[in-house]
């Protein structure tokens, strides 16, 4: 795929734990085009963070191990390049906003120090230049009295402001790709709406590609162009955003959408609920990982794990399921 900026193929990551080897990511392939926003959704533990951490080689090893796969960025494999090279990519060309802003900001360093560091490191700026640029960055993400506030420490910022700082920090070296891992989950809706607007504005101004990880199917609906749904370390459905919501095809995606009440009042008397729990995989399954919770499951589902295949109506919409959920019959 020549026009993709990031092309991940067959990624597998495992963790050694006292209970056995956890297969966290099980052959994940996806690509990201220039300027595109890709949403990654799925419930806790389905492998969203591990997929992105693996791509950037941020998996602690041991216990983690990237067992297979390639991740081409501008044509070069991130998984085999030298440590120096990957450090040059991280934070500069691909930057990441981590799940918890309080743990990713250093509490004993001022906001200014933390913003300036990558500028000194990656861009070789002088202190003065770095300070000016940091002020600009804080202004860009809407922090009032930016130059003054550089001196403050993280605890003097509210949750929403800290998240803005994280965004400013991630954008400081003008990356080509921004990976945002649940950047608004801990925030109130009015603050979440502020951040989403901010990211949309910056995306349009700066033209970067975004991978937005979340469990909130509402947020991706308004933000992403394409969405992939993960379950048990697999991508089980992938589609342009409109088609995913209009024609969800995997039983899990259908269940998730059905379990969400809507604020605009499409009122359901009873929420659809998916019984059972998401799996923790101690071995790579030779069955569909969703089978224990699936209403459609048939014999084949317990014997073979389906691969992602295009649905008949749309070549860009792919689903990993043996059953055509529209008709309830096996896919041919």
């Amino acid at each position: 795929m020549p026009d993709s900026l990031l092309d991940v193929q067959g990624l597998e990551t495992t963790f050694k734990t006292p209970d056995g080897v956890v297969h966290a990511v099980n052959g994940v392939s996806f690509n990201l085009k220039e300027g595109e926003t890709l949403g990654v959704v799925g419930e806790s533990g389905c492998g969203k963070s591990v997929t992105m951490h693996s791509t950037l080689r941020l998996i602690p090893s041991p216990p983690g191990r990237i067992a297979a796969g390639q991740a081409f960025f501008n044509g070069r494999d991130l998984l085999t390049m030298s440590n120096d090279e990957i450090r040059g990519v991280r934070g500069a060309q691909i930057s990441m906003i981590f799940q918890d802003p309080m743990t990713s900001l250093n509490p004993v360093l001022s906001i200014g120090r933390q913003l300036e560091e990558p500028l000194l490191l990656h861009l070789g700026m002088t202190r003065k230049q770095a300070e000016d640029r940091s002020t600009e960055l804080l202004e860009m993400v809407g922090i009032p009295n930016a130059r003054e506030r550089l001196k403050d420490y993280p605890h003097q910022y509210s949750g929403g402001m800290r998240q803005r700082v994280m965004i400013a920090m991630a954008l400081s070296c003008s990356p080509q790709i921004l990976i945002a891992d649940e950047p608004t989950t801990a925030l109130d809706v009015t603050i979440q709406a502020q951040i989403v607007e901010l990211v949309k504005r910056l995306r349009d101004e700066l033209g970067m590609a975004i991978i937005w990880i979340t469990h909130d199917l509402g947020i991706v609906a308004g933000l992403a162009r394409r969405v992939m749904v993960m379950y048990g370390g697999y991508i089980i459905e992938e589609s342009p955003v409109n088609d995913l919501y209009a024609n969800p095809s995997h039983p899990y995606t259908i269940g998730l959408l059905g379990s969400l009440p809507r604020v605009d009042g499409l009122h359901q008397d009873k929420l659809f609920s998916i019984e059972g729990l998401p799996p923790v995989l101690y071995h790579k399954p030779n069955a569909c990982p969703f089978a224990p919770r699936c209403r459609w499951a048939m014999e084949r589902c317990w014997k073979e794990n389906p691969a992602l295949e295009p649905v008949p109506s749309s070549p860009e919409h792919r689903v990993a399921c043996w059953v055509d959920t529209k008709t309830g019959r096996p896919r041919s």
């Binding site: 709406a193 509402g218 955003v241 919501y245 809507r262």
Partner: peptide, 12 residues
């Protein structure tokens, strides 16, 4: 109410 995302890109 207007800040709550709707899981439907068209309505949103």
């Amino acid at each position: 109410l207007s800040a709550v995302p709707i899981p439907d890109p068209v309505a949103d």
